[in-house]
Amino acid sequence: MLRVATGVALQEQARSARPDCIVIAGPLPDLDDVEACRALRKQGLITPSTPIVLVTATPATRERRLAGLRAGGWDHLAVPLDADELLLKLDAYMQAKEDADQVRQRAFVDEVSGLYSARGVERRARELVADAWRRHAALACVMLAVDAQPETAPDVRTRDTGVRHHVASLLRDRGRTSDAIGWWDGVQFAVLAPATGAEGAAQLAQRLSQAIETSPQPQPKGAPPLSLDVHAGYEAIHDVHATPVEPETLLARATSALRQAVAEPGGARIRAYSTHGGG
């Protein structure tokens, strides 16, 4: 259990601790309780299923209770509290959160690779962009496309599934713990890299590409070992607060750079996003 005394401390702890439940007791010295609840929801500091309970020293008016619910609160209680009732409610709320989180986690994880799914990548992009904006920090997105040769493997679907699993294992082993790595589409992968500028993104793309291409190559049953070729595209923002970017735009720019790299045989295999379409 963590206790804080101000709205600022509440937001900081919510971001770092990822609580199972939050109880806001009365107006805080620097922030109204309803506004504190709204800030937690709006800024994405907690998951949508995290219960927030507002507690006031006196019974709240109907308008105040409705305002708390509209701000994302789950309940609005007044002192004196029935301890048994409160504990039973909190237990039920946290069980509901756990169930919702498990469903959400399954939707955000790709079953084949064990990495984030495309939906999971989009969700992490929203979270990381919001965090980088608050911290005036850098953020990069690297997209990787893996081309498996020969294309005449006996079972293309089985081949691609095997490649997906193989590359996912490499990315988990070689990626940084701070990075969010996901399967994007086909045999394409996305890496969201916090606190990473353009130079770091280029180095990350180079390192991961080399790891994939130089690793022992997968071998489909009844076929020779595959040869994996990698192209990469990336976009990096030096300071997300100074140069705001939407999460969808960050992903789209990295994808555009990747397409440019793939579309030019013999050209640069790693491309930075450019408004002119080049690297």
Results as ranks from 00 to 15, higher is better:
51 P>F: 00
125 A>F: 08
88 L>Q: 15
53 V>Q: 00
56 T>E: 10
86 L>I: 03
82 D>E: 11
100 A>I: 00
93 Y>P: 01
99 D>K: 08
86 L>K: 04
91 D>N: 11
57 A>R: 09
79 V>L: 15
143 M>Y: 14
99 D>H: 14
127 E>Y: 01
105 Q>D: 14
88 L>A: 12
84 D>N: 15
120 G>K: 05
62 R>E: 14
74 W>H: 11
111 E>K: 07
101 D>P: 08
116 Y>N: 04
78 A>H: 07
96 A>K: 00
110 D>F: 08
104 R>V: 01
134 R>C: 07
132 A>C: 08
68 G>K: 02
115 L>T: 04
81 L>Q: 01
86 L>A: 02
132 A>T: 13
100 A>L: 02
79 V>A: 14
107 A>I: 03
93 Y>D: 01
105 Q>F: 11
112 V>M: 12
67 A>Y: 09
141 C>R: 00
145 A>Y: 15
113 S>P: 12
138 A>R: 03
80 P>E: 01
56 T>K: 11
55 V>D: 08
72 G>H: 07
58 T>G: 12
54 L>C: 06
51 P>R: 00
95 Q>K: 10
78 A>P: 14
62 R>G: 15
143 M>N: 10
128 L>R: 02
83 A>E: 15
142 V>K: 02
129 V>C: 03
124 R>D: 13
101 D>Y: 01
66 L>W: 09
103 V>N: 01
73 G>W: 01
117 S>A: 05
137 A>G: 10
130 A>F: 08
89 K>P: 10
63 E>N: 07
50 T>N: 00
122 E>T: 04
126 R>Y: 13
123 R>W: 11
121 V>L: 10
60 A>D: 12
124 R>C: 09
95 Q>Y: 11
124 R>Q: 13
87 L>S: 08
82 D>R: 04
72 G>C: 08
50 T>I: 01
113 S>W: 14
85 E>C: 09
138 A>Q: 09
109 V>R: 05
96 A>W: 11
98 E>A: 07
121 V>W: 06
131 D>S: 05
127 E>N: 02
77 L>F: 09
96 A>F: 10
90 L>M: 06
70 R>H: 10
81 L>M: 03
110 D>I: 06
82 D>W: 13
79 V>H: 14
